[in-house]
Amino acid sequence: MVSKMKLARVETGLTQAQLAKQVNATRQTIGLIEKGEYNPSLNLCIAISKALNKTLDDLFWEGD
């Protein structure tokens, strides 16, 4: 399953490395979050949401 975060990132036209740089993380960490292998802290979630112009619900809520 492609994660909402990955879809949003591709939509925004950012690479994993570019997003990682914007949120002060590493490309590996972004890859792990997109694959669902790492649960980021709330601070990192917020930073990612801001970088991708989305809300936390848009990216990380699994309801719909």
């Binding site: 002060n24 993380a25 590493t26 590996q28 960490t29 790492y38 980021p40 802290s41 990192l44």
Partner: peptide, 12 residues
């Protein structure tokens, strides 16, 4: 004090 030895990236 352990922060001195730890990387900045939260996963690492």
């Amino acid at each position: 004090f352990l922060n001195v030895f730890l990387p900045e990236d939260e996963y690492k």
